[in-house]
Design a protein around this nucleic acid. Structure first.
Lengths: 253, 253
DNA sequence: TAAACTCCTTGACTCAGATCAACCCTTGGA
DNA sequence: TCCAAGGGTTGATCTGAGTCAAGGAGTTTA
């Protein structure tokens, strides 16, 4: 039954013209000219995933790379004894996989329903050699991710539980504001795309601590909640202070 | 006096022929053909730094990029209240700076005497557009660093103090073995290139905890020490177990 | 030759966050 | 209509690492 639902979704997913693609200007193909885009169009295919589905297991053979078109996925690492750490959050336009690498290095799990634009690895690698625009954009995106990872190292290594929660909410809020173009004026409203447990895995905390600190931030008026997931931020500056960040907001990501 | 010492060193540092460069096959220029190398040779210059010297302050204008030729530097981030987190360790052949970025994002500090091979940013950026071999290699190196940063996120987020120390020692040991070609057979011997405080900054710990855990690993026979810095590892497998890693050793970095 | 550093170690005490446990609410089968 | 499961909250208790404090060992300065 579940399987039927999946195939149905795949059928649904008629190939989109790259020109109409929602991530056209941010993904790995962002710099491609129309002729380059046509080549990509020939080798691309779409795949759908349901919330909760594992896209790839760490260590598995991985013979494609892909862009997230819509939905959210997590990148996690697991130790033998079961401790897990999220090492990345994949949002629309983010790139999955590494050219030149056979096997996946992390588990990739869809946290919402998701659409991915995939390319078989070999043809993609060949294209990369010929079309520098793709490699250029991929370099730029990888450098951005490296900065994000390093920023996160500060969060994991030196921030308190409360600061960690505030940092995560700030990041999601900022990303959401950028996407929905609502700007930074006035109160921000959005849904947390992660369960408490996933937040804990991202922050190097337990889910109980996450729950307690979210409650504390709510009690102190830094955020307000509608249900468990819908967050309102009355004052972004205040939130950033709580996150231990420079209250001037920092750079766009 | 200190200044005199520095200028003396700069004078010392006669430009080396790229063909004889110790990092020729690992640095950002690794894939360059001899004609490309000649172009690089025209725009490169060397700079020397003494142990303890700050190479760049976070936020400063940065109009060069560079490769570490010899010595070690750290990349650190600092919060307003003074908490600091190291986000990278720069070893010979590592690349510093980001094409397309005006200002440094992190503090870079030399922990040992150091030689860097520098390129003014603008000419380097222009060269990158024309010579894909440079961009290709930089992409590869950046992807490796991203993997390293993510590995470190697991260390920071989920490992105990003892595991963190073991992980750091294992990483330094492995890098050192690779460099000195002594292979993984038999006991490894090397010097810790970091003070206890720098180790603490890397691991998200206090220097007291670092000191205690180093002593504990010594007492338990996982490592042995000669002085404060010289480490011998009788059994790498044992160390990796203590680090919480798969004892099969993992991939080469 | 001592004084002043820097780097490191060790002990005693504290506390933030983990652990263990109980319980609530919502959703969706059967 | 109930029951099971997933997601979330809250309380009591424990503990690993932080904090504060004293002191050692080796080097450089004067």
């Amino acid at each position: 039954m579940a399987k039927l639902a999946i195939s149905e979704k795949i059928a649904h997913c008629a190939p989109v013209d790259c020109g109409d693609c929602p991530i056209r200007h941010r993904a790995v193909c962002a710099r491609c000219e129309s002729d380059e885009l046509e080549l990509l169009e020939q080798i691309k295919y779409y795949r759908n995933f349901e919330a909760g589905q594992t896209v790839i297991w760490s260590g598995d053979q991985m013979d494609f790379v892909a862009s997230v078109v819509s939905g959210i996925a997590t990148l996690t690492q697991t130790m033998e004894d079961g401790r897990t750490q999220m090492v990345g959050l994949l949002l629309p336009s983010d790139f999955v996989g590494r050219p030149g690498r056979e096997c996946a290095a992390y588990d990739v799990v869809a946290t919402t329903d998701m659409v991915m634009c995939c390319f078989r690895r070999k043809p993609f690698e060949q294209m990369m050699v010929r079309t520098p625009h793709i490699a250029q954009r991929l370099l730029e995106m990888t450098l951005d991710e490296l900065d994000a990872a390093r920023e996160w190292m500060l969060v994991l290594g030196r921030k308190t539980a409360r600061e960690k929660i505030a940092s995560l909410i700030a990041i999601i809020a900022r990303r959401d504001a950028a996407l929905s173009m609502q700007g930074m004026r006035g109160p921000l409203v959005f849904d947390l795309p992660l369960t408490r447990e996933a937040m804990a895995d991202y922050l190097g905390l337990t889910l109980e601590t996450v729950s307690r600190q979210v409650s504390a931030l709510k009690k102190d008026g830094v955020i307000s909640l509608e249900g468990k997931r819908r967050v309102t931020i009355p004052d972004m500056g205040r939130l950033l202070e709580e996150a231990g960040d420079d209250s001037d907001g920092g750079l766009l990501v």
